[in-house]
Simulated assay, not measured.
Amino acid sequence: MPLTAAEDIADLLQTARTIAMVGASDRPDRASYGVMKFLQDQGYRVIPVNPRITGEHVHGEYIWRELGQIGEPIDIVDIFMRRETVGPIVDDAIKVGAKAVWMQLGVVNPEAAARAEEAGLKVVMDHCPKIEFARLGLKPVEQDA
């Protein structure tokens, strides 16, 4: 079952440090652009992934083509993509050893969620971490030294 309880979502957000954002955009009018900046401002390392703009930079971070290229531990894979494209992203999240997948508002894919959970990942669907951060009254995270 995807995480829905406030304390479970809060725990996930407070223990995570690195978020890979699949579908990150370099366009200020896109939701992912603002959410990425917000998460960075809360102390997270946010690594953008978008095959359409690979090699560019957004908010000071290099944009990767796919999760497998990142080469460092990922706590949460935040998915800003359409529901029908989520399956392969979740499969990649499992392959790279991510701890959780987070499907943004309006993104619901029970089949992909079940695969992630079966592989031991935590799952959040149809929520936005920026909204949850504010709703839960969370404080910025501190990166480990």
Rank of each mutant, 00 (worst) to 15 (best):
R115F: 05
A134I: 15
N50M: 06
E132A: 08
L13K: 10
L39Q: 11
I63P: 07
I79C: 00
R115L: 01
G23T: 00
Y33F: 15
D26F: 14
G97F: 12
D75C: 04
H57S: 15
L67A: 05
V46I: 11
R52T: 11
I74N: 03
T4D: 11
G34S: 12
P48Y: 10
V46P: 04
E117S: 14
Q14E: 10
P88Y: 08
H57D: 14
Q104P: 00
R52L: 12
V58K: 14
D91F: 13
A93R: 06
Q104I: 03
K130L: 13
C128Q: 03
I53Q: 04
D78H: 09
W102I: 02
R135W: 05
A114I: 01
V86H: 00
A112Y: 01
H59Q: 07
Y44N: 02
A98G: 07
A116H: 01
M103H: 00
V107K: 03
P129L: 00
H127E: 12
P28Y: 13
Q42W: 08
A116Y: 01
P88I: 03
V108G: 05
F133N: 12
E61G: 05
L105I: 13
R65Y: 14
A6C: 11
P73M: 12
A20C: 06
V58Y: 09
G60N: 08
A112K: 01
I79R: 05
R52M: 13
V77I: 02
K130C: 04
R17E: 10
H59P: 08
A119V: 03
G106H: 07
R17G: 01
V123T: 00
A98Q: 06
I63H: 04
T85W: 13
M21Y: 10
G120P: 04
A93W: 12
G68Y: 10
R115C: 02
D78L: 04
V58H: 12
A100E: 11
G106L: 10
